[in-house]
Amino acid sequence: MKNLFFVVLATLIQVVFFCPDIDCPHCSKKIYENIAFEKGVKDLSVEVDSRQVTVKFNAAKTDTLALGKALAKIGYPAQVVEYREVRK
């Protein structure tokens, strides 16, 4: 019950990172295989052409900084280009 209450109130954030080092489909695979399993990540897509990574996450479990660090750790330094709440 406590968890349900928590989920209902959780804030879902969508952040779009620009990763200049994305340059091939293998990059998207690597990002997907790693970032999808970061705590709090609810959805993820990677677009090679625009070099953008879009992440939806539970704000109670992670934040933009942690996700940016996770991207940098696997070789993709990232800049936030869009940040918005998609659900409260």
């Binding site: 489909p25 998207s28 695979k29 990002i31 997907y32 993820l44 897509s45 990677v46 677009e47 090679v48 052409d49």
Partner: peptide, 9 residues
């Protein structure tokens, strides 16, 4: 194609 955009899902 090798150059296709990948939107991983």
């Amino acid at each position: 194609t090798l150059n296709a955009t990948v939107v991983t899902a």
